[in-house]
Structures are given as C-alpha cells and as structure tokens.
Amino acid sequence: MGVLLLLLCATFVWSGAAGDDRSREPVPDEEAVGPTPERYVGDRVELNGVVTETDPVLVQLWYDDGGWVVTVEGTGVSDTEIDSGAEISAYGVLTDQNTLEAERAVTREPWELTYMYLISVLGAAGVLYRAAAGWRFDRNEFAFVPRDSGTAATDASDEGGASHATDEPTEDEYADSNGGGRRG
C-alpha cells in the first residue's frame, strides 16, 4: 500500500516534469505562447480565453505573468454564433502576434460551466452516499467490507450459515449484529 502511494506520488511528479512531452502532438497553449507570441507566428496553437467582442472576435488571454488580446478569425469562428463573455478554445495558425486563423473553435457560456460543476458535484455526492450505504470499515480486517444485507443473508439462508469454510461471513454477521448502527 505504501509502495503504491509512493508510486502514485511519483506519477504526479513524473507527469509534472513531462509537461507537454506527455503528448505526441503537443499543441502550444496560451500559457506557452503568452510570454513570447512572436516566436509562435506560423505555428498551430490552441488558445483558451474569454470573448470580449464578437465583431471581430476579440479574445482576452492570460498566462502566468500577464495577458494579451488576440483577434480570432477564420472558419472556426465565422461558422459559429459567439456571444461576448463566452469561454472559447480556438485552434489554428497564429498568423501574427495578435491574430489567430482558427480552424476550429469551441465556445461555452459561463452558465454552462456552472452547470457542469453543479451536476458533477451531484454525481460525486450520489457515489459517496452509495459508498457509505453499501460499505463499512471493518476494524478487525482494517479494511472496507460490504454491508451485507444481500450476499451474507442469501448465503446464510441458502447454505444454513454453518457450512462456510472461511470465517469471513461469520465475521460479517458478527459485525452486523454488534455494530449495525456504526457508520463506516
């Protein structure tokens, strides 16, 4: 267990160290382009920011130590209806420091992001509730075991509850009768 936790932490560090090298087709983003956009002119980049004006489409971008504004043109934005204030992710060629010729763009309204987080919290809460209802921490095993209303009871009635070679169902029954009200 300790080894696995260490490995997991090592993976976070490895991933952090790898950065863009994790990707086979690394596409520079606003963090990378921001400090020196002139070095990326002619390259394909993906810029994520907020739409401040729609005709032409102006996008406010931020990076670590600052921000800049880019005009987004091309089929990526001309085919889509874009509202001011929307979050945009635009992919295409940086034709000069402040212009992106977008092949594709994805936009989302701020409320859509709020929706995503709210519905995701709902999903997380549902899983946590089911986990607490279905599992409990067994102090003898020092591990999680199912709260056995289903299996153990069925096993017990099918097999008389006495024919088990393992002691695990017995422990469960013991724990159920003694600690049924205890929350895991």
Binding site: S15, D138, T166
Partner: peptide, 29 residues
C-alpha cells in the same frame, strides 16, 4: 518539484488508484 494532478486522468495514475482502492477492501473482495 514539478507536480501534476493530471496523472489521475491517464492510464498510469488511474491504474495505481485502482490498485490502492482494491487494497482498501478486505482480501476476499
């Protein structure tokens, strides 16, 4: 040290989390 939670969202971190999750349960399960 460089650090990235993003490792959870690729195979490596996901698998390690699965292994840890399984070890948190009693051996028969």
């Amino acid at each position: 040290v460089p650090f990235d939670w993003g490792a959870f969202h690729v195979l490596g971190g996901s698998l390690l989390a699965v292994a840890i999750g399984a070890l948190l349960t009693a051996p028969p399960h």
